[in-house]
Each structure stands twice: as structure tokens, then as C-alpha cells.
Design a protein around this nucleic acid. Structure first.
Lengths: 254, 254
DNA sequence: TTTAATTGTCTAGAACAATAGACAAATTAT
DNA sequence: ATAATTTGTCTATTGTTCTAGACAATTAAA
């Protein structure tokens, strides 16, 4: 990543100074610009650098401490708890754990909720089903290094993948669950990426502070015959994950 | 895009209520949830829905009017000016104008600035040059439908593509400029995507309000022999553009 | 024309954010 | 042991944001 200019803190922008500073420090920590030695500059120095009062910086630091990014010790200083952003490769055939393996430990996925429901238009279309056909919805949360990195909502044809929720709850893996249900392999058909502010539910699950950004991917997986098997919307904590799209093999058109 | 729950407006979050509401309305307008008929609900209704005072909603609307997303007419109502997000496809052969052709008119790219400078480590590495080797830096701004959509910073080997700035200033196209300089074709080698709050420079160029989000892509283009020809960092206005990756993969596949 | 619906403007007070200064408490260096 | 450095706590003041209410101005409908 290349950075040249100095972000100016904006007043009267509807975003409190402490929040702008917190967001910026979080980013710079992720980029290694700040606290690369694990230690943050003293509050007075940061206040000077951002052109604000020391108390304002303290509020920002308190937010990052709350988030688990920083740790403050009286008399000693403030230290970095989090680490650099993980690179998440988006390829035709990539699986969560393979993608992050080697960069992090403690990979895990939790099943938060699941339900069978009628497919709304978007999902029916993506899965090549009739609107209203029963689909299984899975709400999952993925961790790396003990920190939550993504929150996903996936839909599957309830007829073809009847035991999906049960299998995922046990295996904690989509790939493994598919295999149990007779699908040996699958490919990514399409992925749309956008970004927005995290919503309150995601703030909680991903342990973010208000104003934090999520990268959102909308993806469709297909089986070897090109039949859609999974539709999903995933929210990544933008300050913990970076999506990588290698330009390798040619792609199926949309 | 699928949405189930109702985003709660967060108080004491460091983000002013009017800004949270503005951000959310901008997003819902982009998704067609709000103002799909071109008309916004009355202020009183919006205030009720968000659980805030009418004046707070008015501040949010004023920001979106300033941004060009809404237009308010006394006695008549408030109307949508902007339109849905454009899809920007990222493929092996990614071209700006081809990508957005058919979705919008008035495509244009402006050259804001250019310079020859020594390559810093990141860029030298990406372009397979020695650190400090001369590179051309181009600062460009792209529009669609008369609205700015992306702001890019690109680097090229100054030796191989000596006339790049002049050619781009004239042709307003990277593809055309490459062709003039003897490069008939190029491919996308890699793309990294992340997201963050827009910085003050981009706020101005992309005509965004503070707190707005930009999608950032770091891309490397290569020639037919695999030799890197361009390194670029592009910031897209996240509420105007959605990146589309045919045949990618994402996080649910644990 | 009258009425209803809607945006625009004004005033005043309450809640929140930022500044300023002083000093306490803990740690490290001299 | 003493001094310097650094985070933690407290009080007071000022500016910004949010709420509340009233009413004007404009448009469209009855």
C-alpha cells in the first residue's frame, strides 16, 4: 500500500474528532505506520500530531482499547494488541481455512443461527429455484487469531442440502458439509464486492466500534455442472481483512 | 442484496445521528429500498422511522442534497437525483470504459497531475524495477453520468513508457495510451481490495461528504510476457460503484 | 377558494464533544 | 532516592448536535 498525504481531521463533519482519530489510528496500525514496534507514541505526541487536545486522543484510545486493538498501562505506555490485516484470496477454488492458513492461527467458524424459509426473489434467482421454494439460511461467524473477521449469511436449496445446518454445526466447515451431503467439489461463479458502515448486529458480532467499515461480498457457488449450490452475503471487518484477487485462470462470464 | 433487520441508529457513538441517517439513506437509495419511485417519504415520516427529531432528518437530507443525491422542493417533497450503483467488473482484461459501457453515459477520465519520480520500494517491486528507478506517476479522476466515480494513482516505468502522461492527457484512456506507446494488449495480474473512510482530497475530488466510504483497489497490470506495466491504487466511491469479480471466491466456504 | 400536505426558518434549551489546566498514580531512568 | 515520563482522574468552560415547538412559504388536492 502506498500513502503520500496527511489526512486532515475534519471538524463539524458529523463525525466526532475522537472517532476520526480512532478510525485513522486503527488503519495506520493495520498498515504498520503506527506502533510497528508494538508501542504507541505517548498521548501528548499523538495529540500534537493530530492537532487536538490530549483528552480527545484519550477518548480515541479508549475506544480502541475497548475494541481490543490497543492496551494501555499506566506509567508505561500504550501498546498494540491487534496485528496487521490478513490477506484473503478470492479465487475460483478457495476455502476459508486454506486462504488464511499460514497467516494466522486459531481459525474457527461458529453457527449463530439457521432456519428454513421460503426463498425471496433475489435468492431464488441466484439459486435457480422458484420464488418461495424452501431454502436453508445459515448465519455464521468466522474467527482468525481469536478475533472475529467475517460474518456471513448463506442460503442453500433446502431439498438438495437438507442436513446442511446440522452438518455445519458439527464440521464447522462449508466444504466438509457439502462433502457429507454428496457434493465433492464446488466453484465460485461470481462475487460482487462493496463496502459500507457496519450495522449494529455486525458491530456486536465482529466486535467493531460504530463507524467501522465492512467489506461486503455477495457470492454464488456452483457445482461441477454449473448448478448454483450456495448464495451468500459476507461482511468482513475492513480493518482486519484485505481481499486479494489474483488474475490467473480465466473466468466464467456472469 | 438481502436485508432483514432494522439498523438501529446509535447514540453516543461518535458519529452524529444526522450523519448516520444520511449514510443509511444514501445506501438504501442505492439499493432501491428508499425512493425507488424517485420520491422520498416526507420528513415527518422519516423522523418517525429513524426515531429522531424532524430537524435531525433535515440535516441529513441537507447533506445528501449537497452531495447531489437528493433534491428538495418546498411544498412538493424530496426527490432522488442519484441512481443505482454501477457495476465495475474486475477480470483478466479489465478496461475502465468497457466495464461501465452500457450502464452509463458520459464516461470520462481527467488527468489531474503527473510527475516523474524515483520508485519507492513497493512500486519498484511490483513493477520489477530497482528501487529508485524513475517512474511516471499519473493522478486521474474518472466520471460516469457526470458524477465522479473513481480517483486513481498509477505508476509506469518511465523508461519504457516515456510519453505516458502526454498520451493520457490527449487520449484520456490508459488502453489507448499503451497502444500509442507500442503495447497492444495487457492483462490484470492481481487486484487487492479494501475499504476505508475517504480522505479529504478524495472527498473533494469525488464530491463525497465526510464519513463516506471508498473501495480501494491495488492492481498490477502485465503485458503478454508477464512483465508488469502498471501499478495502480484506485479509490472508488463505495455508494456509486460495486466491484464485480466473475469466478472469485469468498469467506463462507470455511 | 379553502384545506391539507410538505419543506423552510426561527428560537430556546438539553445532551454531547472538545478544550484547558491541575494533579494523582504508576513506571522507568538517573 | 529522586526525577522524568507516562497514563488516569477531576473540574470547568466552550462549541456542536439534538430536541421541541411554533409558524411561514409553497404546492397540490378538495
Amino acid at each position: 500500500m502506498v500513502r503520500t498525504k496527511r489526512t486532515v481531521i475534519e471538524r463539524r463533519s458529523g463525525v466526532a474528532l475522537w472517532r476520526q482519530i480512532a478510525d485513522r489510528m486503527r488503519r495506520e496500525i493495520g498498515e504498520g505506520v503506527l506502533g510497528s514496534d508494538g508501542r504507541m507514541p505517548p498521548e501528548v505526541v499523538l495529540a500534537e500530531r493530530f492537532g487536538v487536545n490530549r483528552h480527545t486522543v484519550r477518548t480515541a484510545i479508549a475506544a480502541l482499547v475497548q475494541e481490543g486493538v490497543l492496551r494501555a498501562e499506566q506509567g508505561r505506555g500504550t501498546f498494540v494488541e491487534g496485528r496487521k490485516r490478513l490477506a484473503y484470496p478470492i479465487r475460483r477454488r478457495t476455502r476459508f481455512s486454506e486462504g488464511l492458513a499460514g497467516q494466522s492461527r486459531g481459525l474457527a467458524a461458529d453457527l449463530l443461527d439457521h432456519a428454513v424459509e421460503p426463498a425471496i426473489a433475489d435468492i431464488a434467482k441466484a439459486l435457480h429455484l422458484l420464488p418461495g421454494a424452501p431454502v436453508i439460511r445459515l448465519e455464521t461467524l468466522s474467527h482468525a487469531d481469536g478475533r472475529p473477521v467475517s460474518r456471513a449469511r448463506s442460503w442453500f436449496d433446502a431439498e438438495r442440502f437438507a442436513g446442511m445446518a446440522e452438518a455445519f454445526g458439527r464440521t464447522r466447515s462449508i466444504t466438509a458439509s457439502f462433502r457429507e451431503l454428496g457434493l465433492a467439489d464446488y466453484l465460485r461463479h461470481s462475487t460482487a464486492v462493496t463496502a459500507r458502515h457496519a450495522e449494529s448486529g455486525d458491530l456486536k458480532d465482529l466486535r467493531l466500534s460504530p463507524g467501522a467499515i465492512v467489506l461486503v461480498t455477495i457470492a454464488v457457488n456452483v457445482d461441477a455442472q454449473g448448478q448454483p449450490v450456495q448464495y451468500s452475503e459476507t461482511r468482513f471487518a475492513a480493518d482486519r481483512i484485505e481481499l486479494h484477487i489474483p488474475g490467473g485462470d480465466d473466468a466464467v462470464s456472469v
